[in-house]
Amino acid sequence: MAIVVKRPKLKWWEQLYIPGIISGMRVTLGHFFKIVSGRKKVTMQYPEEKWDESLPEHYRGAPALVKDEQDRERCVACQLCEFICPPRAITIKPEEIPSDDKWAKVEKRPKAFDIDMIRCIYCGLCEEVCPEQAIYLRKDYAITGTSRAEMVHDKKKLYEIGGVRVGLVNKWNELK
């Protein structure tokens, strides 16, 4: 059904267009002076001002490996994250833990653990699938580099971002 749009009948001074310009300029200049005088602030000046403290708890930033309270690397190189990673950003080279090591009973640890941050889509599936709670998505979001090689996070870098995480997984403790 066709709808007939009723056009408003304008008064003669409205047809002059000039009152319309003035009321329009009142709106735009209102915005202009509010912004210029600093009474209203909308934009954040990014590199100087950051939003980091108000990032939500569930924020999914760069994935990182964590150590537990006894300085043991939690990752046991099961490679589940490598298999589930949708863009195949994770590459793990496992190695056996030598028998004279304190944590010999864990048996396996990653020799190399690389995450290609150009590929990573921050989906969080690695965190979800990890049986040892060894990989977490942290709040780092400004991952930059000037070359492809720089964008690959190796094991050292991943532990640097991840740090220490306490709790939950206790099965490798001495007592058990």
Binding site: H31, I35, V42
Partner: peptide, 10 residues
């Protein structure tokens, strides 16, 4: 700059 201020930008 003026257009930015009018549109609440920087």
């Amino acid at each position: 700059r003026v257009s930015a201020a009018i549109q609440d930008r920087v």
